[in-house]
Amino acid sequence: MLSQFIFSGLALGSIYGLVALGFTVIYKATQVFNFAQGMLMVCGAYFAVTASIHLGLPFPLTIAFILVGAGILGIAIYFLLIKPLGGQALLPMIMITIALSIILRAVIELIYGGAPLTLRLPLPSGVFVLGDVRISQLHVTAAVVSWLCMLLFIVFFRRSRAGLLMRATADGYEAAVLSGIRVDRINAAAWAIGTMLAAIGGVFLCQLQLVSVELENIGLLALPAVVIGGLQSVPGAILGGLLVGLIEQLASGYISPKARDIFIYVPLLLILFIRPWGLFGQKELGRV
């Protein structure tokens, strides 16, 4: 029983971690606390619907379509909303992202209708049986792909020149422009990556259930994940996501589904009291 909970918690947590990582990438680059992250995740699911059902693309092209679509969406959001309205205080920027998520929801409902859709992608759907533990292949796929994406991002972030410039820009805006970094490009890239990571999470969530704007509520679990892990911290986002997944499964399994929220949000409050920079974040937050 326990091993089952841990396994499914880690699988779901990997998806949360992926979405949370996208959130952190955006936050680090542009200091925007993005409440639309859950909706960006939903957009990923609907990109999949467009590619697979409406355009009838084969699976590899569907993946490419989702990634390109999410990348373009992220870049468009950056240049149309964040850049022109940027440099404002945290609160107006939060309002902007809330407005963005409402608009995205309305646009999706207009195009695809309010009713949930069914999308079947050719992902493994069987079951591995290991002793008395039964493991869904879809869960395994979701976890493995999430971890690959996270690994890929960390290698990019730590080892590539673009990653270096991204870290430098996150460190200080003025220093970045005075070093000749084209900050707009870096920030747009951060939004593109953040949206792509969310979109991949959305594709897996819509395979676990239906394609619906209501998936946003699940995507928003990325927010407690990043606050617990540390807003600025890349490993914090990933581990925070895993933690939220585990807490969700264990609390629902051993106590009650309602207990889930208590066990996610009480630690969140505790963290904010004791260690506001998060479990894995650094004390010195923001720009110096």
Binding site: M1, Q4, F5, S8, L12, L205, L208, Q209, E214, N217, I218, L221, E248, Q249, S252, G253, S256, P257, K258, R260
Partner: peptide, 19 residues
Amino acid sequence: IPIKVVAADATPQVLEILA
């Protein structure tokens, strides 16, 4: 066996069914 409207997964519920 209760479940939430916004559930991402039904593993805990189904494990109870299994038991």
